[in-house]
């Protein structure tokens, strides 16, 4: 497994597409998490997603005390979509480039190849989460300092919980992308269908859940709903609250959402292994 992991990390570290996705993720997080709200605060009011928030509320959301919800707010939908693309690339590209046969005809077993990929995806996602937390911490500190506000940081244990929650959410989406890459043996189909599901279908289901009872029960098992609920449980405003972010919802409790996402990770790993084990690489 470690051999495969080291090989995967070498591929990921030198892959321009991954760096582009990481840059997009980090830029979007800064722009929508700090830059635009700060400009709105300086302009004297909120609009759009920040509608209904006073300048004081806008500023409060940008201070160190709100680091965790402000960072995680974009994870269920936007960052999740990017994580899904990363996962789809890591597995689907092996089919597109025919490199699966190259790596499978070396030494490691298929299970070890998959373990290496999952571990590499997890490491990459964890790295992204840590970097975005660090960048957001920097901006929140800068804003607190320049506006003469208190720099009350969350407790380390809370930050660790926030990082863990973010890792779980993005990890789940990335593994969904990776599984789709293996099942469809392609990057394009995996990423395309994955994004349609994450960005459109889940939102439609949530939209109709209030009308159709069975959809309400169904949505409680969806990865996006549970990701949104986990983020909401950590203090992020839901979409129907002032300053709320799309994808953040409070349908289930935080612990329940955590359990459901962990189940997703486990089931995805098993299904991916079964699929890869049975595939003829032609």
């Amino acid at each position: 497994m470690w051999r495969s992991y080291r090989a995967e990390m070498l591929k990921i570290a030198k892959w321009p597409a991954i760096w582009i996705l990481a840059a997009v993720f980090l830029v979007l997080a800064q722009v929508f998490g700090y830059l635009i709200p700060y400009v709105a605060y300086r302009s004297g009011g909120g609009g759009g997603f920040a509608a209904g928030e006073t300048p004081a509320q806008l500023l409060a959301d940008l201070l160190p005390g709100r680091l965790i919800p402000n960072t995680l707010g974009g994870f269920p939908l936007f960052a999740g979509a990017i994580a899904l693309i990363i996962g789809g690339l890591v597995t689907g590209s092996e089919y597109g480039w025919n490199t699966l046969k190259t790596i499978l005809s070396q030494r490691p077993r298929r299970l070890a190849i998959l373990e290496g990929k999952v571990l590499a995806i997890g490491s990459t996602i964890l790295g992204l989460v840590l970097v975005v937390f660090a960048m957001n911490a920097f901006w929140s500190l800068l804003i607190a300092t320049t506006t003469d506000r208190a720099t009350d940081w969350p407790a380390l244990s809370e930050i660790a919980r926030g990082v863990g929650a973010g890792w779980l959410i993005l990890g789940t989406w990335a593994l969904i992308g990776a599984l789709l890459g293996i099942l469809f043996r392609s990057t394009a189909l995996a990423v395309g269908l994955g994004l349609v599901w994450a960005l459109a279908v889940e939102n439609l289901i949530r939209g109709f859940a209030g009308v159709l009872g069975f959809l309400d029960a169904f949505q409680k098992g969806l990865p996006g709903t549970n990701a949104g609920s986990l983020v909401a449980s950590l203090g992020a405003p839901t979409i129907d609250q002032p300053g709320g972010t799309p994808g953040v919802t409070a349908v289930v409790s935080g612990p329940q959402a955590t359990i459901v996402l962990l189940i997703y990770v486990s089931v995805i790993a098993v299904v991916a292994w079964l699929a890869l084990q049975r595939q003829d690489v032609t």
């Binding site: 051999r3 090989a7 030198k14 321009p16 480039w97 790596i103």
Partner: peptide, 16 residues
């Protein structure tokens, strides 16, 4: 892997 150099591709093989 098209984005890797020939040498880096062999490094991937060596690691595996």
């Amino acid at each position: 892997y098209p984005y890797l150099s020939g040498r880096d591709n062999l490094r991937v093989i060596a690691r595996l």
